[in-house]
């Protein structure tokens, strides 16, 4: 990434202008040509610097108010294999292994599940529990009760 890429990132990370020709508007603000801005965006997408371009919905506004972070204490020697299976469940949107912080935090597998109700999320957690069997020593579901901030990544120009 060069300096011009970084300027484009800084100018668009809070969003694209809601005008008919948004890339032209960004280019005009930065003193660049629109074709340069678009070519750089395409390149950054191909390189994975941009994951995607589009809308980010607010789960709460869509009625998906039960946002449950299910967390699991798995035997370390089977965590990779079981984590892969959990990740394949179609209702799991994010799935990671992360460090424990005992005693407050014994869990090493994190799997995010969204639902319209907590009952729905709990039923999904039951499915995960059945899949994990005896390799799972403990689990919990953390519901989000409030969005405190959601701005996405910010980098300096």
């Amino acid at each position: 990434m060069d300096e011009i890429d970084r300027k484009i990132v800084a100018a668009t990370q809070e969003g694209l202008p809601l005008v008919p020709r948004p890339y032209h508007a960004v280019a005009a603000d930065l003193g660049l040509s629109a074709s340069d801005v678009m070519a750089r965006l395409e390149r950054m997408m191909a390189e994975g610097v941009i994951r995607r371009i589009g809308v980010v919905p607010n789960h709460y506004a869509l009625g998906l108010s039960a946002n449950g972070m299910t967390v699991w204490d798995l035997d370390d020697d089977v965590a990779l294999e079981l984590g892969r299976k959990v990740g394949h469940l179609d209702f799991v949107s994010h799935c990671y292994l992360r460090p424990r912080h005992r005693p407050v935090w014994p869990y090493n597998l994190f799997a995010m599940a969204h639902g319209q109700t907590r009952e729905e999320v709990e039923a999904k957690a039951e499915e995960i529990a059945a899949l994990l069997g005896t390799a799972c020593r403990a689990h919990d579901i953390l519901y989000s009760t409030r969005i405190l901030k959601k701005t996405g990544l910010r980098i300096a120009a």
Binding site: G15, L16, R51, P57
Partner: peptide, 23 residues
């Protein structure tokens, strides 16, 4: 899209950047 942004149904609209790919 403008209205969905204003009413908070959309939290963002635009490119989603991957910090890891930017180093």
């Amino acid at each position: 899209i403008t209205k969905l942004r204003e009413t908070g149904v959309l939290t963002r609209f635009g490119p989603m950047y991957n910090a890891e790919a930017m180093g």
